[in-house]
Design a protein around this nucleic acid. Sequence first.
DNA 1: TAGATGACTCACA
DNA 2: ATGTGAGCCATCT
Length: 107
Amino acid sequence: MTFQEKVLHCLTQIPQGKVVTYAQIAEAIGSPGASRAVGNALHRNPNPDKYPCYKVVNAHGKLSCHYACGGLAAQKYRLEKDGIKIIAGRVDLSVYQAQLITKPKLI
DNA sequence: TAGATGACTCACA
DNA sequence: ATGTGAGCCATCT
Protein backbone atom coordinates (compact mmCIF):
# COMPACT_ATOMS: atom_id res chain seq x y z
CA MET A 1 0.00 0.00 0.00
CA THR A 2 1.54 3.25 -1.10
CA PHE A 3 1.52 6.47 0.79
CA GLN A 4 -1.14 7.80 -1.49
CA GLU A 5 -3.29 4.72 -0.99
CA LYS A 6 -3.20 5.24 2.75
CA VAL A 7 -4.15 8.87 2.41
CA LEU A 8 -7.06 8.09 0.14
CA HIS A 9 -8.20 5.29 2.41
CA CYS A 10 -8.24 7.72 5.32
CA LEU A 11 -10.48 10.03 3.37
CA THR A 12 -13.11 7.31 3.16
CA GLN A 13 -13.02 6.99 6.93
CA ILE A 14 -13.96 10.58 7.56
CA PRO A 15 -17.42 10.57 9.17
CA GLN A 16 -20.06 12.64 7.47
CA GLY A 17 -20.26 16.20 8.71
CA LYS A 18 -16.62 16.19 9.82
CA VAL A 19 -13.30 17.30 8.42
CA VAL A 20 -9.65 16.47 9.02
CA THR A 21 -6.36 18.27 8.66
CA TYR A 22 -3.37 17.29 6.56
CA ALA A 23 -1.25 16.70 9.63
CA GLN A 24 -4.01 14.54 11.07
CA ILE A 25 -3.99 12.25 8.07
CA ALA A 26 -0.22 12.07 8.06
CA GLU A 27 -0.26 11.01 11.68
CA ALA A 28 -3.04 8.50 11.13
CA ILE A 29 -1.15 6.70 8.40
CA GLY A 30 1.99 6.47 10.45
CA SER A 31 3.95 9.36 8.98
CA PRO A 32 3.55 12.30 11.36
CA GLY A 33 4.95 15.44 9.84
CA ALA A 34 4.26 14.35 6.31
CA SER A 35 1.45 16.86 5.99
CA ARG A 36 3.09 18.20 2.88
CA ALA A 37 3.28 14.79 1.32
CA VAL A 38 -0.40 14.35 2.12
CA GLY A 39 -1.16 17.46 0.14
CA ASN A 40 0.83 15.97 -2.68
CA ALA A 41 -1.14 12.76 -2.56
CA LEU A 42 -4.42 14.64 -2.71
CA HIS A 43 -3.14 16.75 -5.55
CA ARG A 44 -2.62 13.57 -7.50
CA ASN A 45 -5.94 12.19 -6.33
CA PRO A 46 -6.87 9.57 -8.98
CA ASN A 47 -10.53 9.39 -7.93
CA PRO A 48 -11.73 12.79 -6.75
CA ASP A 49 -15.24 11.46 -7.18
CA LYS A 50 -14.69 8.61 -4.75
CA TYR A 51 -12.45 10.25 -2.22
CA PRO A 52 -13.86 13.30 -0.40
CA CYS A 53 -10.74 15.40 -0.63
CA TYR A 54 -12.89 18.42 0.08
CA LYS A 55 -13.05 17.31 3.69
CA VAL A 56 -9.39 18.03 4.12
CA VAL A 57 -8.39 21.42 5.50
CA ASN A 58 -5.16 22.88 6.80
CA ALA A 59 -4.22 23.20 10.46
CA HIS A 60 -6.10 26.50 10.72
CA GLY A 61 -9.32 24.96 9.44
CA LYS A 62 -8.99 26.87 6.22
CA LEU A 63 -9.82 25.34 2.88
CA SER A 64 -7.16 24.65 0.37
CA CYS A 65 -6.95 27.40 -2.22
CA HIS A 66 -5.41 24.93 -4.65
CA TYR A 67 -8.32 22.55 -4.56
CA ALA A 68 -8.44 21.20 -8.10
CA CYS A 69 -11.79 19.38 -8.08
CA GLY A 70 -14.24 22.14 -8.87
CA GLY A 71 -12.55 25.01 -7.14
CA LEU A 72 -12.85 26.50 -3.70
CA ALA A 73 -16.50 27.32 -4.25
CA ALA A 74 -17.34 23.68 -4.94
CA GLN A 75 -15.40 22.56 -1.91
CA LYS A 76 -17.24 25.02 0.28
CA TYR A 77 -20.54 23.97 -1.21
CA ARG A 78 -19.94 20.28 -0.48
CA LEU A 79 -18.84 20.99 3.06
CA GLU A 80 -21.95 23.01 3.75
CA LYS A 81 -23.99 20.22 2.23
CA ASP A 82 -22.40 17.89 4.75
CA GLY A 83 -23.70 20.10 7.52
CA ILE A 84 -20.44 21.95 8.04
CA LYS A 85 -20.73 25.65 8.59
CA ILE A 86 -18.13 27.74 6.79
CA ILE A 87 -17.13 30.84 8.70
CA ALA A 88 -15.00 33.40 6.89
CA GLY A 89 -13.76 30.74 4.51
CA ARG A 90 -12.86 28.30 7.23
CA VAL A 91 -14.41 25.66 9.47
CA ASP A 92 -14.50 25.41 13.24
CA LEU A 93 -12.03 22.63 13.92
CA SER A 94 -13.05 22.46 17.58
CA VAL A 95 -16.43 21.31 16.32
CA TYR A 96 -15.94 19.62 12.96
CA GLN A 97 -12.51 18.06 13.33
CA ALA A 98 -12.98 14.30 13.15
CA GLN A 99 -10.97 11.74 15.08
CA LEU A 100 -9.10 9.68 12.55
CA ILE A 101 -9.30 6.21 14.03
CA THR A 102 -8.31 4.72 10.73
CA LYS A 103 -5.36 2.40 10.84
CA PRO A 104 -4.67 0.96 7.37
CA LYS A 105 -1.59 -0.80 8.64
CA LEU A 106 -3.49 -2.83 11.20
CA ILE A 107 -6.28 -3.82 8.89
C1' DT B 1 21.16 9.26 -7.55
C1' DA B 2 20.49 14.03 -6.86
C1' DG B 3 17.83 18.21 -7.09
C1' DA B 4 13.45 20.56 -7.29
C1' DT B 5 8.50 20.86 -6.16
C1' DG B 6 4.19 21.14 -3.45
C1' DA B 7 -3.48 21.19 -1.75
C1' DC B 8 1.61 21.91 4.90
C1' DT B 9 3.08 23.46 9.68
C1' DC B 10 5.37 25.92 13.18
C1' DA B 11 7.94 29.82 15.22
C1' DC B 12 8.97 34.53 15.30
C1' DA B 13 8.75 39.61 14.26
C1' DA C 1 -3.67 39.69 12.59
C1' DT C 2 -0.26 39.37 8.76
C1' DG C 3 4.35 38.24 6.55
C1' DT C 4 8.64 35.75 6.40
C1' DG C 5 11.77 31.87 7.01
C1' DA C 6 12.97 27.18 7.97
C1' DG C 7 11.69 22.18 8.50
C1' DC C 8 9.18 18.43 7.05
C1' DC C 9 8.00 14.09 3.81
C1' DA C 10 6.78 11.70 -0.63
C1' DT C 11 6.82 12.23 -5.54
C1' DC C 12 8.50 14.02 -10.03
C1' DT C 13 12.03 15.20 -13.41
